[in-house]
Simulated assay, not measured.
Amino acid sequence: MFDKLDSLDIEELKDLRKTVDRAISSYETRKRQEAISAAEQAAREHGFKLTDLLGNGKAGRGRKSNGGTTIDAAKYVNPDNPEQTWSGRGRRPQWINEALDSGRTLEDLAA
Score class of each variant (00 low, 15 high):
residue 37 S to T: 05
residue 69 T to Y: 00
residue 33 Q to C: 12
residue 47 G to K: 04
residue 10 I to Y: 12
residue 54 L to Y: 11
residue 50 L to G: 09
residue 34 E to W: 02
residue 82 P to K: 03
residue 72 D to Y: 00
residue 41 Q to P: 01
residue 45 E to V: 07
residue 17 R to F: 10
residue 68 G to N: 14
residue 102 S to R: 04
residue 77 V to C: 10
residue 67 G to M: 02
residue 28 E to T: 09
residue 10 I to R: 15
residue 84 Q to K: 13
residue 54 L to F: 08
residue 23 A to H: 07
residue 75 K to D: 01
residue 110 A to L: 00
residue 79 P to C: 05
residue 91 R to E: 14
residue 14 K to L: 13
residue 67 G to E: 01
residue 84 Q to W: 08
residue 20 V to M: 03
residue 76 Y to D: 04
residue 74 A to K: 03
residue 4 K to I: 10
residue 22 R to M: 11
residue 42 A to T: 08
residue 8 L to C: 13
residue 89 R to F: 02
residue 5 L to G: 01
residue 41 Q to N: 06
residue 19 T to L: 06
residue 40 E to G: 03
residue 18 K to G: 08
residue 102 S to V: 05
residue 92 R to S: 15
residue 93 P to L: 04
residue 109 L to Q: 03
residue 17 R to N: 10
residue 71 I to A: 04
residue 85 T to A: 15
residue 3 D to C: 10
residue 26 S to V: 11
residue 70 T to Y: 06
residue 1 M to C: 05
residue 81 N to F: 11
residue 4 K to S: 15
residue 53 L to P: 02
residue 94 Q to L: 14
residue 39 A to Q: 10
residue 35 A to I: 07
residue 21 D to A: 06
residue 66 N to R: 15
residue 101 D to H: 01
residue 10 I to C: 14
residue 15 D to E: 06
residue 106 L to G: 00
residue 51 T to M: 08
residue 63 R to L: 09
residue 27 Y to P: 00
residue 62 G to W: 05
residue 11 E to N: 15
residue 33 Q to A: 14
residue 36 I to Q: 01
residue 87 S to G: 02
residue 95 W to T: 03
residue 23 A to V: 05
residue 77 V to S: 02
residue 91 R to P: 02
residue 104 R to Y: 11
residue 94 Q to W: 04
residue 60 G to P: 08
residue 59 A to S: 13
residue 57 G to S: 10
residue 37 S to N: 10
residue 108 D to L: 04
residue 67 G to T: 02
residue 111 A to I: 00
residue 4 K to P: 03
residue 82 P to S: 11
residue 77 V to H: 07
residue 41 Q to Y: 05
residue 92 R to V: 02
residue 89 R to H: 12
residue 2 F to C: 08
residue 24 I to C: 02
residue 50 L to V: 14
residue 12 E to T: 06
residue 83 E to I: 05
residue 41 Q to I: 06
residue 55 G to R: 06
residue 31 K to Q: 10
residue 2 F to H: 12
residue 22 R to W: 11
residue 87 S to A: 08
residue 91 R to V: 09
residue 18 K to H: 07
residue 63 R to T: 14
residue 13 L to P: 09
